[in-house]
Computed example of a mutant assay.
Amino acid sequence: MHPRWIAVIASSVALVLGVVFWGTTGLVVWSITQSQAAAELGTGLPPLDDPIRETDDDFRITEVYEVGADGILSPSPSAEAAAVWAEIERVFTPRVAATRISQLKVGDDPSSDTLAWVSREDTPEYWTFAANVAYADDEELWLGTLVHEYAHVLSLGPDSVDSYTDTCDTIWTGQGCLLPETALLAFSDRFWEAYSDAPEADNVDVDVADAFYAAHEDDFVDAYAATNVAEDFAESFMAYVMEDEPTDGGVVADKLRFFRDYPPYVLIRERLRAEFDLG
């Protein structure tokens, strides 16, 4: 399996994915141009053709783009934002990216420990996707992160989660109540039900996750997977896509084999491994 990821959760509201360092990663800084900065300083507002810029808790200043129904970013994206969006489209497919992501936020902060996060919008089928391009030069790291995010969108969409209910008879994920017969609920029943010390399904406390991981290290792909069941699902799916199929035993191998029972996830794995020449 790949080396463990180091993750930092930066928000208790949005579903936030911490940056993950996979081996020794090189860093590249894609900085916002001097002309954009000068324009803001001179007028207090960005030019009309430039993206809105806002201060983000994770990435310092971010550029904000709206995603049209045709998958076109508005306003016209910077080179960095266009590259991020192109990679998202490769992983999600253009159709899914356009119909599930309503807003793209792009930051550049090599001092941040956060690589990317996704957050559900008020309309349940739509998400905001935020990316820190300071780490985007590491192709393996970046691809694994996009696959992880894709797993969240797949497993926490409106066909899997009721975001409006006041009661929950299954699991409250922080994004809503899991509907019966969904992949994430089956994953939880199979791999998390037996734990007496498991974090809550909406846990975002790093210390809680670290303690749980320390007690059950062999059961997880990496430390971040122990945060909550949704993160375990996403990290396990990422490993299922990125790694060769397991031939050994153990809980981690069983988690990867879990996805074989869900044809949409199998097809996604096959497509991504072909698209990115993963062997």
Score class of each variant (00 low, 15 high):
T182D: 08
A83E: 13
L278E: 01
A209F: 04
A134Y: 05
V106I: 14
D56Q: 06
V153M: 09
K105S: 13
S12R: 14
A131F: 15
A131M: 15
L15I: 08
A239V: 04
E231R: 02
T62C: 03
P47V: 08
V64A: 06
A239D: 13
G250R: 10
V91P: 08
E40P: 00
I9S: 12
V221N: 05
Y213I: 12
Q36E: 11
V221I: 15
Q175I: 01
T62S: 12
P246E: 06
A226Q: 05
E89K: 15
A274V: 10
A130Q: 08
P246H: 06
D162N: 15
G18D: 02
G26W: 00
G44Q: 07
I88A: 15
L48A: 13
T33F: 00
N132R: 02
Y150S: 04
A226K: 06
G23H: 01
E139M: 00
I61G: 01
A151Q: 07
N228Y: 00
L115V: 02
A10Y: 02
T25H: 00
S188V: 11
A38S: 14
A37H: 11
W192P: 12
F276D: 01
S111T: 13
H2W: 09
V29Y: 06
A134G: 15
P180S: 11
T173D: 09
D197K: 09
T62E: 09
E66K: 12
R90C: 00
D169T: 14
Q103C: 10
P264Q: 04
L184D: 06
D207N: 13
L179W: 06
T167N: 04
V204A: 12
F21C: 04
L45G: 00
E193P: 00
A10F: 06
A151M: 05
E217L: 07
I171R: 14
V96N: 05
